[in-house]
Simulated scan of single mutants.
Amino acid sequence: MAVEPAVPAELLDRATALTESLAPLAADVDTGATDGTAGLKLLKDAGLLRLLVPRDSGGDGLSFAQYTRILEVLGARDAATALALNMHNVSIGALCEAAGGRLGTAGRSFADWAFREITEHDRMFASATSEAGSGAKLRGVRTTYRRNDGGYVLEGQKSFVSLAGVADYYVVAARDAAEEAENEVSHFVVAATDEGVAFGTPWPGQALAGTHTAGMTLDGVRVGRERLFLGVEGMSLFKLVREPHWMVSGYTGAYLGLAGAILRELTESVRTSPARAASPVVVRELGRLSIRLTAARALTYAACAEVDMARGTQGTNAGVHAAKYAVGELLADLVASAPQLVGTAALDRRRPLQRYLREAPFCSVMPAKPDECLAYVGKTALGVNLADARAFDW
């Protein structure tokens, strides 16, 4: 059985209580009957934006494994809001982990500012990395920055920005316009209210409307030197290559919760149908899926524990890729098996199961994709040095 991370009871209770408010909203947000930001406001009001912020900076100081457990709880009732919370934490997770190390004067000042914005003003951060044609791969970033008057000017287009127009700040990936090297990528914090920032209409996907995802335009956006992430240029790809867990498996907890929710719905539907419950084929299939869920959960929490104990080692990095792959494949299996197990009940819009089944495939399009996960684990097995950015398509 998986060793569940020990999360402070008060935080676990708060997350559980939040799901009771989120669950009734989820269906209406999904169909557009309710404002897609409703769940995000509840998330902010619950004080969960500071989960990762170090305790000495006013946050809860959760570990990666503990945070993943919170995501699992939220994802079991409202995957969209759980993913939205993760988008906030993908943006600040590396900063929270680095806070206990040697940041230097500029880095320390940046961290102090970001943590105050979250803990004192409930500011929400989001990631603006993905671009058309290259997805979330930093090496393909075409958004640029140039130095100007002691600060920077950003130009570019971002696609699939979650929390678009909802978050207060966006951590934008950009390359130096004056350099040819594609590996020189930096991150900058852009405020939603900065001149030159604009958002498109929300993406009309088949599910997950609650993530409020849209394109973002940066047209001559000026930011001060203090908005350079960690106060250092050109470190983004270097950091990702060595510590990819946020980009690769930050989402995994939310999707693990979704997988558990799907299996519970399937099981309950079978239980209330005597004919299906008496079918040996159905019973065996439920058993197989239960084993797969248990295995994926164990792998996820083992990988998260490795992040907490040995962040950045190649074994740890292979583990988070393996966990992301396992959860994504489990969800695909659950989607394929649902009609066989429960028939038309899988499509009944009055039940949450049909929404869960529409949300599930998105796990495999989030980085890292299944083939990328397999390639990473395979290269690790072959002894390839994946700390070298040239060894993998980042």
Rank of each mutant, 00 (worst) to 15 (best):
A360W: 09
W113E: 12
E120T: 07
E372H: 05
R147T: 15
L347Q: 15
G287D: 02
F110R: 03
N183E: 14
S109G: 13
D219S: 15
V171P: 02
A27V: 08
T313K: 01
L138A: 12
E20H: 05
A94V: 07
H187E: 12
F64V: 10
M1T: 08
M1A: 08
L237G: 09
D176V: 04
S186M: 06
D45F: 15
F362C: 10
F188R: 06
V185R: 00
G150R: 12
F160M: 07
V283E: 02
H88L: 04
G75H: 01
R390A: 13
L382E: 14
L341T: 07
T201E: 14
V153I: 06
D168A: 05
D388F: 11
A345Y: 13
A6K: 10
T272D: 09
R102I: 14
E243T: 04
D194R: 13
A296Y: 00
G59A: 13
Q157G: 04
I291C: 11
S134A: 06
D308M: 08
T119F: 07
E233S: 12
M216I: 14
T144P: 04
Q206L: 11
R77G: 02
T380Q: 06
A167V: 10
H212E: 11
A174F: 02
C373W: 00
E265A: 04
R351Q: 15
T201I: 11
G200H: 09
K239Y: 08
A387G: 11
V3I: 15
L331H: 00
M235E: 06
S273Y: 08
G140R: 04
Q157S: 10
S273A: 15
V223K: 05
T300D: 08
D28Y: 08
E117S: 00
C304E: 03
L22V: 06
R264I: 04
K324M: 10
G61E: 00
A254D: 02
T31C: 10
L12D: 07
V283Y: 05
M309I: 15
S236G: 06
A192C: 11
S130W: 02
D112H: 05
G220E: 14
K369I: 15
S134K: 07
S337P: 10
L83G: 07
L263F: 05
A346C: 13
R102Q: 15
E179F: 12
A375I: 10
L163Y: 02
G220D: 15
L330I: 06
C363N: 08
L341A: 06
A46D: 03
T37S: 12
V335L: 06
V171F: 01
